[in-house]
Design a protein around this nucleic acid. Structure first.
Lengths: 141, 141
DNA sequence: TTATACTTGACTAAAGAGATCATATTCATA
DNA sequence: TATGAATATGATCTCTTTAGTCAAGTATAA
């Protein structure tokens, strides 16, 4: 599973919205791009996808922006990665169905499952909690 | 970690050579392409890389071909994937160093480690043993 | 009415994957 | 010593994906 910039940005946006979900007023795209250095028009695309999934709501007009519309405990990084579209660990090549190909395929599948399990356990609410406990500071000494 | 066709074919070739390493005579490229449906000129490229790594030897001329030149117990699928070049699970985007980015990065790294561990434990000799025990038949019912 | 902010759709540049081809070079064997 | 089988090497090509841009339109608060 390759984490593309698109998926990474989608996770950043979802986390930012989750953290600020108790503010009441929606969060403008501009605030996210400024704070996280995400290219503006690209983030627009991504938020549109998230809106299509029903995970965020948009508020148009002045004072508009985006707001989380799901329980952050129910969304994992795996959900976001799969929905936004990232490539699986594994192989799409067809080739011949030989025993060797079969054994290899089983290994690719096992590897994919291992990383999927890690990302599946990382819920937005869990990560927000960590962020608020300052757990992140250790990464930027 | 995305397993590209290149990596998959490299593993197929290494396994084929490992299985037939007691035959004495080298294995021709043609035999591998016929048996596994790998595009010929593409496999040539890949075997060249494997030769550069010192993992296979080539024998030129008539009756030539390739031969494994390392102990199959010392090479894992992870070694092949990394040497041939596959993308990591994870993210290369730089962006700003925010706490959110840091927390996400840690998750991408954890996921990468999980799949790397699976592939690191799969040695060529282990897979050959499985193949010879007919373990593969279950994948093609 | 005006500034702000989201909406929508089309568009482009760069990189990588997956090959393919032509032309050498080497060596066993007849 | 020809000859054919087999690898060696470098150049090239196409297709898809990724990342990012642009322009014109619409809605809303103040």
């Amino acid at each position: 599973m390759v984490i593309s910039a698109r998926v990474h940005y989608a996770c950043v946006a979802m986390l930012e919205l989750a953290i600020r979900s108790d503010e009441g007023s929606p969060v403008a795209i501009r605030e996210i791009t400024d704070r996280h250095g995400v290219p503006g028009p690209f983030l627009v695309q991504i938020l549109r996808s998230l809106r299509g999934l029903g995970w965020v709501q948009s508020v148009r007009g002045s004072q508009g922006g985006y707001r989380l519309s799901v329980d952050p405990a129910t969304i994992s990084l795996l959900d976001i990665a799969e929905a936004i579209g990232s490539q699986e660990v594994g192989c799409r090549t067809e080739g011949k169905r030989t025993p060797i190909a079969g054994i290899l395929q089983a290994q690719w599948d096992d590897a994919a499952d291992a990383s999927r399990q890690v990302l599946g356990q990382a819920t937005l609410s869990g990560l927000v909690e960590r962020a608020q406990q300052g757990d992140a500071s250790m990464f930027y000494i």
